[in-house]
Design a protein around this nucleic acid. Sequence first.
DNA 1: CATGAATGAGCTTTCATTCAT
DNA 2: GATGAATGAAAGCTCATTCAT
Lengths: 191, 191, 191, 191
Amino acid sequence: MSPRTTKQLEEIRASKRALIMNTALKLFAVEGYYITSISKIASAANISKGLLYNYFKSKEDLLSEIFHLGMDEIFKDFDPNQDGVLTKEELMFFIDKTFQKLNKNKDFWKLYFILIMKPSVFKIYEKRFMELVAPLFQTLENYYSAKGLKNPNAEARLLGATLDGVGMHYILDPENFPIEIVKQIIIEKHI
Amino acid sequence: MSPRTTKQLEEIRASKRALIMNTALKLFAVEGYYITSISKIASAANISKGLLYNYFKSKEDLLSEIFHLGMDEIFKDFDPNQDGVLTKEELMFFIDKTFQKLNKNKDFWKLYFILIMKPSVFKIYEKRFMELVAPLFQTLENYYSAKGLKNPNAEARLLGATLDGVGMHYILDPENFPIEIVKQIIIEKHI
Amino acid sequence: MSPRTTKQLEEIRASKRALIMNTALKLFAVEGYYITSISKIASAANISKGLLYNYFKSKEDLLSEIFHLGMDEIFKDFDPNQDGVLTKEELMFFIDKTFQKLNKNKDFWKLYFILIMKPSVFKIYEKRFMELVAPLFQTLENYYSAKGLKNPNAEARLLGATLDGVGMHYILDPENFPIEIVKQIIIEKHI
Amino acid sequence: MSPRTTKQLEEIRASKRALIMNTALKLFAVEGYYITSISKIASAANISKGLLYNYFKSKEDLLSEIFHLGMDEIFKDFDPNQDGVLTKEELMFFIDKTFQKLNKNKDFWKLYFILIMKPSVFKIYEKRFMELVAPLFQTLENYYSAKGLKNPNAEARLLGATLDGVGMHYILDPENFPIEIVKQIIIEKHI
DNA sequence: CATGAATGAGCTTTCATTCAT
DNA sequence: GATGAATGAAAGCTCATTCAT
């Protein structure tokens, strides 16, 4: 009789939004962004095409929302006390956490690797990406600097690249990649 | 006015084929595979769309040919004497060579990173890829084994992943990435 | 807390109906009929899309209602005593009144000119339109006939067309069109 | 065997372009611009949708091309010796010619009246339109000025508006509108 | 060998309309 | 009376591919 309350509506919107984003994330990661049509997403989420556009302005917007949300979630707890100082234990914890996240969000990371290489798309995310990643690199650099290494910046860059490379290889072939031992070796070499 | 000899015709075909492939490689790397239309490739190569189909049976085929040729070229001299034994000097040379190639073929490597992550596409190339890469990994593993390391396979995998990660980061931001110093550190850490 | 009386409800309905029609008229005139979506009208009128359909059974129906109401209002006082006889003063008054109305209802007249040319739409309104306009033309014809002119019908038709043409030009460029002087000339030429 | 000559291609392009424009003009005039879908145009012209986009960048572009070509053709011989001086005979000739053109290009004129009132569209054509029409009005003004009339500009504007109004009414109801007699009366009143 | 007009399937997107609440 | 989530048909447009020349 009476219209739904604001709270009800918000719940509907939030849960449907999440449904669409999760469905799309999976498809984007498994099939690729261009291959995945709006129709496919809609029917996989059991909604109409039209409704999707009620939640997202465009296909690109949907991608962008997924990516930003993912980045925020992934990076949010890499920011423990923000003092910029890293102990040996903290760095070990950081690396450990990285691998845990990789395991828990394979779909997102697959999308991340796909997107990060997409020329036209990377520019859109570059700024946000740099904002999130820059402090991380700085902290790492400080760590290596305090350790007395000659090229702390290069060491930090190398660790970042190594983690990305390992992530890529692991995601491409999760069954055969010796992820645990590799993690140990990284800790030995880079701490 | 005499008809072209078979040899001349073959030369024309070969050079036109190369022209198309190089044009497409550049566009694929810079703009992306889906964005790049056959029309664009044809007009960038100053030929007609029809002619392109005279050389490649589909857009996907063109991509595949580029990728395979690239892979073959890139990997062909990583196979020096095939004895499977690597000295310290040879490994250093190998790493050095890897970075040189990265620099000389940025377009190809960009395409390589894009494609390798594309789920639907990777499967097509997986076999050939593994054939090319497997002996490399084996040789590396032997090297680390001979060196007495505990986990030679993981060490080999890690070096591969590290090189890929560095390649990715370097290609994304060639101006700022300290490629030379990173190379030195890799040599220190992994040899 | 007592339920609203029937009369109150009727008032609410009437005023909301008018609100929707005025909002839509403005948007139709300024943006065009097809461009203006139901959503836009609803949000401009601060109501829900659903409610709009409580008052009008379709977009076309809304347009039709606006147009009919406008026509009725515009033409209602062109029918003073219905005796079909027009004095010179009455004709001057008529022309004057026409221009006044043009000024007061520019939005409606713009819509009128747009719609009158729309083939598919004109047929819908043609009958009502003719019913309203025919007596006017008849009266004008009688006037010219009484004045002894050779082609009273053509004179009446010409005056009608002239007023429409002037209306169009005035609405397209209200700042520069010398409406007052033009009115005087029309009076001179056509009375 | 050999590809078509440039001349052949030009002929194909020109005739197909004209076919599309004529088909679209008719449909736009009879059904309206928005109602007429690209599919309808294509199938009325017996070509595929895709081919239409080979000749026109967009639906709007097609409309624009039709309108501009029409305007140019219509106005091109209203520019006899460009001396800006009009004799009584020339003005009569001008009015006569106007009505002839109206008759020969009813479809175009219908489209013209539809478009000229379309808010969003008129702005696109305004400039070209003004360039074509302004000298005409100037010449008319000079004529009335030379005749010693008090308000030559308003007289010119009125004649323009009258011709447009008559055009509109005639097009809306060609069978019943006494076009010939009306023309005579206009000549009497405005010359 | 070479051309580009032509096709048509399939894409993203819009929007009038419905209906459970 | 009032809401807005949901639908689905249809729109404009793109593009890999074909084929007559």
